[in-house]
Amino acid sequence: MEQLVKELKQHLIEELNLEEITVDDIDTDAPLFGDGLGLDSIDALEVILILEKYYGVKLSNSAEAKPIFYSVRTLAEYIEKNKK
């Protein structure tokens, strides 16, 4: 799980062009949107693409995205449960 968390943080940095941020700067349990990492709705679309591109995971229902997209940890847990 720790390896997945680290890998996920790296993908977020690369795909969202967060050049000034390192893997260590991202708190695994901090919110991704709003006060935490400060991502927005366009970034959410990129996160969906990261899940599909690197992990083969698709969100079946966009209504379920909010709790899944809360933090890096909740994303990693969702990937663990749903990757092919």
Rank of each mutant, 00 (worst) to 15 (best):
L51Q: 11
D29Q: 14
Y70G: 03
D43V: 15
D43F: 08
K84D: 13
I13A: 06
L45G: 15
L37E: 05
D35H: 12
K58I: 03
E20N: 12
D27N: 14
A65T: 05
I68E: 07
D35L: 10
K66N: 14
R73K: 13
Y55V: 04
E14M: 09
I13P: 06
E15P: 01
V57P: 00
D25Y: 03
G36D: 06
V47Q: 10
E80R: 12
Q10P: 02
A65S: 06
V57Q: 02
E77R: 10
G34E: 00
L39S: 08
V5K: 01
L45A: 15
I68T: 11
E7M: 06
L45E: 14
E52G: 02
D40P: 03
K9G: 00
K58V: 04
L75K: 06
E52R: 11
L18Y: 10
K81P: 07
K53V: 08
I79Y: 04
L59S: 01
M1P: 08
K9W: 02
I21K: 10
P31T: 15
V57G: 03
N17K: 13
H11P: 01
S71K: 02
P31Y: 13
L45W: 12
F33G: 13
S71R: 01
I50H: 08
T74G: 03
H11Q: 08
V23W: 02
V72G: 01
L8C: 00
M1G: 12
L12R: 12
D27A: 15
S62K: 13
E46R: 13
D40K: 10
I50V: 14
E80C: 12
N82D: 05
A44M: 11
D35Y: 10
I48D: 09
A63C: 04
V5F: 00
E64K: 09
E19Y: 12
E14L: 11
E52A: 03
I48Y: 12
K6Q: 02
K53E: 13
I79H: 04
G56H: 05
L32E: 05
G34F: 00
Y70T: 06
A44W: 11
K84V: 14
N82M: 03
I48G: 06
M1K: 05
L37Y: 06
V23H: 06
M1L: 09
Y54D: 07
E46Y: 11
D43M: 12
L75V: 06
E15W: 01
A76Y: 04
K84F: 14
G36E: 05
E2W: 00
E52W: 02
